[in-house]
Design a binder for these strands. Structure first.
Length: 280
DNA sequence: AGGTAGACCCGGCCAC
DNA sequence: GCCATCCGGGTCTACA
């Protein structure tokens, strides 16, 4: 599920419940995740006070008083839920934290693509999850000019280039499609050939679509939910994603003639775009 | 060296 | 209604 807005939604829900609490008990399931918690995970985490939660790209970071940091990635289908009562286990629960305030925080992940790491807070930037990661879209390091400079050396299609987390962190298949639509850029356009002016439009579009999606609590297609079970609703604001053959969000063209939103395949992923507004 | 399939895993959805 | 097939919000690895 989770691209930046979904992870931010999870963070916003977990942070007030977890920050400042002590982790009393940790339970680790035996089913394998993409990266399962390391063997010493329970001993390093149990009894520790949680200092704060943060997000970097699509990763969630839980900082502990002993200077360790838990790194969570939700993969394709991971979600957290907060439970107050016992005996509420669900299929595909992989990890749970019981806190000093009595709350139980449960990580569930049907497709098991999620990742859990433990590292020193001081070594976070060097950790393999972040060592090669580009700036967060909301950080000062991400600018229109920086994006333009990075594009210069990229001969691949802009859609694929934007999915590379080393360029900018947090974008996934949905929000790349939506941002390209807002900027009026064809997804197959070679990144290096995009003008400075168009890059500026794209930069604004990326920030706009991410901000609006966060406001909506993310996009709930299948698995994404807030930690209290509420669904995100940004999927209702999609202009092109998943709308093959339908009119695009701001459609003013003759869908009978154009065939509506077009779906193509790029680097093994589905891409949606409007031939009228993004060309060809 | 950058770019692209393939692998990982399960559930949902669509065609019978 | 039941079974088969394909598809996928993400990343890592291997390959050309």
């Amino acid at each position: 599920m989770p691209e930046l807005p979904e992870v931010q939604t999870v963070l916003n829900g977990l942070s007030p419940v977890m920050s400042g609490e002590v982790i009393m008990t940790v339970m680790v399931g035996n089913q394998k995740l993409r990266a399962a918690p390391p063997p010493d995970f329970i001993s390093h985490v149990t009894g520790q006070k949680i200092l704060n939660l943060s997000r970097r790209g699509k990763y969630l970071i839980i900082s502990l008083e002993n200077n360790k940091a838990i790194i969570h990635h939700l993969g394709m289908s991971g979600s957290f839920r907060i439970s107050g009562k016992a005996g509420d286990a669900k299929l595909h629960d992989h990890l749970s934290y019981i806190l000093s305030n009595g709350k139980k925080i449960i990580y569930n992940d049907p497709r098991r693509f999620g990742m859990v790491y433990l590292t020193e807070v001081a070594d976070l930037e060097q950790h393999k999850a972040f060592s090669n990661m580009g700036p967060d879209p909301f950080s000062e390091d991400f600018t229109s000019e920086m994006l333009f400079e990075k594009f210069k050396s990229k001969k691949g299609p802009v859609k694929t280039v934007l999915l590379n987390q080393a360029l900018v962190a947090g974008l996934g298949n949905i929000y790349v499609c939506e941002a390209l639509y807002l900027a009026g850029i064809h997804p197959e356009k070679v990144a290096a050939k995009i003008s400075r002016q168009k890059t500026a439009l794209l930069y604004d579009a990326i920030l706009l679509v991410l901000k609006n999606a966060i406001k909506s609590g993310g996009s709930s297609l299948r698995d994404h939910k807030g930690v209290d079970g509420t669904m995100g609703y940004f999927q209702h604001s999609f202009n092109v994603y998943g709308k093959k053959g339908q009119p695009c969000g701001m459609c003013d063209c003759d869908v009978e003639k154009t065939g509506g939103v077009k779906m193509i395949r790029q680097a093994g992923r589905s891409t949606f775009y409007c031939t009228e507004k993004q060309g060809k």
